[in-house]
């Protein structure tokens, strides 16, 4: 990606909040006010259970958003995550299905479940490695590479499932992880995992060298290289990290539905990108935060669920997403420009 010397954040003085903190609070404020507005308009919207649902229904996209945000901060796109979700889910099913099935779609490799998900994860990481190879070694723009690998990953899933799904002849253990309820509540294991991932990601982003290097690379790739940072290695790690998250998400979704469906995760890569952008992550790199991305996801969730509550046709969601991203980008640019005048 091009360098963005003119958007380098000015070092804040101690008394002033950083630009990232400012944007994150702005996004959080917007998310909360949108929720309140929706509560006024939509009957039964203002409920604790609804707040919980806004997060738990979107755990997959939020988890994917973490990897995508880190890559965006480093100045790279990752549009392959939706494809990887489909691929790892389908692979985990195919590896775990027993060997004697009635037809091609019910016959798998018969591996034990633990080994099956390990191999499925390996498949996901292979796509991540492919991304890194093309972006880092060949220097091909990440948007084109990851659009290609998205199709390759989904394409492999379609070939394995013959364009539909595999859901028979699975071992007992298969549906366990995705449907496991924790703490005696309705909160499921994948949601908790997403929460842990968020906390770890925020810690890495704020407090660890790995996170800070990601910002340097995005803010000024040349300067990062000159100051001795191995850019290729770092971006490779980020792509593996993102593909790994997408792999786990795919495996958990496959487990939840007890099926490997080649169209699962369709458009999830766009949603992950959309929530990162809503959350103030800059497309040019070097700016953004995981907290912002999380509230971006809440904004999207509130808007879409409120629209469903108002009985708008589901076709509205595309227009709503477009308008939300447009407004987010325009306001954030405007707010930052005003603040740093």
């Amino acid at each position: 990606m091009s360098s963005v010397t003119d958007t380098l954040p000015t070092r804040p003085t101690r008394s002033k909040m950083s630009d990232e903190g400012f944007i994150s609070s702005l996004v959080a404020a917007v998310a909360i006010s949108l929720f309140l507005i929706a509560s006024l308009l939509v009957p039964n919207f203002f409920q604790w259970q609804n707040v919980v649902n806004l997060v738990t229904n979107n755990w997959a996209v939020i988890a994917l958003g973490v990897g995508v945000s880190f890559l965006l901060v480093s100045g790279n796109f990752d549009l392959s995550v939706g494809g990887i979700v489909a691929l790892s889910g389908v692979l985990s099913v195919w590896f775990a299905q027993s060997t004697e099935g009635a037809n091609a779609l019910s016959t798998g490799l018969g591996l034990p479940y633990g080994l099956a998900i390990a191999c499925a994860l390996l498949g996901a990481l292979t796509i991540g490695a492919l991304n890194a190879l093309f972006v880092v070694r060949f220097g091909i723009p990440s948007i084109i590479v990851t659009l290609g690998t998205m199709m390759v990953a989904r394409g492999i899933a379609q070939v394995i499932t013959h364009g539909s799904q595999r859901n028979t002849n699975l071992p007992e253990a298969f549906g366990y992880l995705g449907n496991l309820s924790l703490f005696g509540t309705s909160i499921k294991f994948p949601v908790v995992l997403m929460g842990v991932l968020l906390v770890v990601a925020i810690f890495v982003e704020r407090k660890m060298v790995f996170g800070r290097i990601t910002y340097w690379i995005g803010a000024n790739p040349e300067a990062a290289t000159l100051s001795g940072i191995d850019r290729a290695r770092h971006i490779t790690k980020l792509y593996l990290f993102s593909a790994g998250i997408a792999g786990v998400v795919g495996i958990l979704l496959a487990s939840e539905y007890k099926s490997g469906f080649s169209n699962r995760g369709l458009l999830m890569e766009f949603d992950a990108l959309v929530i990162a952008l809503l959350g103030g992550v800059a497309i040019a790199g070097g700016f953004g935060s995981v907290i912002g991305m999380f509230f971006g996801a809440i904004i999207l969730a509130v808007v879409t669920s409120a629209a469903t509550g108002l009985v708008l046709s589901p076709d509205w969601q595309f227009i709503l997403k477009a308008v939300a991203v447009f407004l987010a980008i325009v306001t954030q640019t405007w707010a930052l420009a005003r603040r740093n005048k």
């Binding site: 290609g148 199709m151 390759v152 394409g155 492999i156 379609q158 070939v159 499932t161 364009g163 080649s262």
Partner: peptide, 10 residues
């Protein structure tokens, strides 16, 4: 037909 996505991506 289900090979199409893979081939176009590749």
């Amino acid at each position: 037909a289900y090979y199409q996505t893979l081939v176009i991506g590749a």
